[in-house]
């Protein structure tokens, strides 16, 4: 998954390169380089390593440490789908929808979207909208302070739509987001906003829930 993100990043760069090349009218440059994105030599502080490579982190002795302006969060617990969230029931579906936002928090804290995409359709647009830039940021040695999602309330009528999907509605609030670049300077910053209704649309296939999409609802 992480490799995919890098490739996408590479594509963007290639497009940019092509644009520049075109602008300079240098036709000889039009053949795109085959491996545009070599893995950058990450010059991030050493503290960033546990967060960017969560798998080998020893889970027993690891103590979670939230991100600071000095470095990313450490030993962020990898989201694990609760038993309840596997059930085909209203409660199970609501648990699944709530769990989805745990995986979104995890993306903000680690740049790793694997747990989210393990339970979500690959063409989820809102997912890509978040996962791509955050994945790039972490790949490049940057990190995010905050961004965790809090589910305040959740509900579902648990009525199957014509296409076989179910919809849950959640009141969700995101913590303030501050992005840091690899050199420690500040990037994007978003203040905490009021909680907002979100919808999770999912279907139950092969004994498990799979999100088609999760979106904040309207209001600009």
């Amino acid at each position: 998954m992480r490799h995919t993100t890098v490739e996408q990043h590479g594509k963007h760069r290639v497009i940019l390169a092509l644009l520049i090349a075109g602008a300079l009218a240098l036709a000889g440059c039009s053949s795109p380089p085959k491996t545009a994105a070599t893995t950058p030599p990450v010059s991030a502080p050493p503290t960033s390593e546990p967060a960017t490579t969560p798998a080998p982190t020893p889970s027993t002795a690891a103590v979670y440490k939230p991100a600071t302006d000095k470095g990313p969060a450490e030993n962020v617990p990898v989201p694990a789908l609760p038993e309840k969230a596997k059930e085909f029931s209203k409660e199970g579906f609501i648990a699944f929808a709530e769990y989805w936002y745990t995986t979104l928090s995890y993306v903000y804290e680690t740049g790793d979207s694997d747990p989210m995409m393990a339970i979500t359709d690959p063409d989820c647009k809102t997912c890509a909208f978040i996962n791509d830039p955050i994945g790039q940021l972490y790949e490049g040695g940057g990190w995010i302070v905050g961004g965790q999602m809090t589910v305040i309330q959740s509900t579902s009528q648990f009525v199957e739509a014509i296409d076989g999907s179910f919809e849950a509605t959640l009141m969700v609030q995101q913590a303030k987001v501050v992005a840091f670049k690899a050199d420690g300077s500040r990037g994007s910053e978003h203040l905490q906003q009021a909680a907002r209704a979100n919808t999770v649309i999912a279907s139950y296939v092969d004994e498990k829930w799979r999100a088609r999409t999760a979106e904040p609802i309207g209001e600009g």
Partner: peptide, 16 residues
């Protein structure tokens, strides 16, 4: 790479 715009989740409604 340096200036990646990190979106907040509420902005995701724009893409849908």
């Amino acid at each position: 790479l340096a200036d990646i715009e990190i979106p907040k989740w509420n902005d995701a409604s724009v893409v849908v």
